[in-house]
Amino acid sequence: MIILKYLLLIFVMATAYLAITFEEELISIIFLSIFSIILTTLYLIHNAPDVALAEAVIGAGLNTAIFMTVISQVREGKDSIFREDD
């Protein structure tokens, strides 16, 4: 169990680093989502299932949708995500 804790901490730091260093915003958002999922596991290991549920729902679900919406609004032209029916 203690090995799992250290491994998850290393993964949290690695995903945070990847999320801030990519130039492309979409990849950063996906890495932020992965960061939230790993943090959920970390909360669950430390006996906090309430916080884990909130983190999973908000961090991995809602944040991704809202950030993607914001990016589709900020970008112009053909690059926007939800523009056509695909």
Binding site: D50, A52, L53, A54, V57, I58, G61, L62, A65, F82
Partner: peptide
């Protein structure tokens, strides 16, 4: 389920409410 079982199991109003809000996001997308 998460809202109404908030006093018995992990969860509560906030987490279940966000799940209910996600349904609107599913409708929109």
């Amino acid at each position: 389920y998460i809202i109404t079982h908030g006093h018995l199991s992990p969860g509560g109003g906030f987490q279940g409410g966000v799940i209910l809000g996600a349904i609107s996001i599913i409708f929109s997308i």
